[in-house]
Amino acid sequence: MTSREHLRYLAYLGAFLVFLAVLPFQIGVYYRSFVMFTMMWVVLALSWNIISGYTGYISFGHVVFYGVGSYASAILVADHGWPWIPTLLVGAVVGLAVAILIGYPVLRLKGPYFAIAMLGAAEGTRVLVTVWDSLTHGGLGINLPNVENSMETYFAMLALMVVTILVSYWVGHSRFGIRLNAIREDELAAEALGVNTTLYKMAAFSLSAVFPAIAGGIQANKTLYINPDGEFLLLITITMTLMTMFGGKGTVIGPIVGAILLYLFQEVVWVKFPFFHLIMFGAFLILVARFMPRGIVGLFIARGWARKGMVH
């Protein structure tokens, strides 16, 4: 890709940003938080995409980073009186630490074994958080001081989303990303062709952990109440998975589009049918995995509207 193309995409992003920066002043609290949560899902889907889309290590437990991030932030704000913004950084560090702790053993597992071990890691962390009540208040959850911060959380999430998009863009257009793809396609061949797979997987995993941890922190300060079952909800992982698969895994635009469409649909239409919508979620995942493995982006490629591959 030429640098002109990079500039064009940056210009799109810039225009999008200006729109999102002006928007919150034009809308009320309800829609402001609605857009905030849409941006959060963009962050989560893009993050899941880095490890699972590019590297092919399907994580069924990615909510764990979101959960520990939100807990780190909530504990510091509620129990130690910190202002909430610096707690996000602590959340990021905790997310990173958990990623290394989990990733070091679990990334050696392949295919389904990694997926299920991640499922176990997330559930296990939920249990630990529930049990360790001296730190986390256990199953009761944590109440945060009640403040109106829809504007602050909006901009925090916007900033996070921009960073996530830029990092994803870099991953998606660099030799780093290509090498992650190579790991997905054939780990042994990748290793023989110069990729230090252990290091690359760890790097991808860490990157994909940091953003959800921060997003979790912002979310905790917006919803003002968290508990283990809510923060380590399997459904959050499923949603990340589905959004990314639906939009197109292993691309930058795919998870963004997938997250926005699915969140809109979820909030506008499906929320009227609470259980039915989750049944549809499962059915939808089946359909996407079975019939459109490359997602919406794949449909565009098939029609010749988009080019194959990520680097040109």
Partner: peptide, 13 residues
């Protein structure tokens, strides 16, 4: 070869 990557990406990897 990497089947889901383009020829160019295979090379660049």
């Amino acid at each position: 070869i990497y089947r889901e990557m383009t020829v160019f990406e295979n090379m660049l990897s």
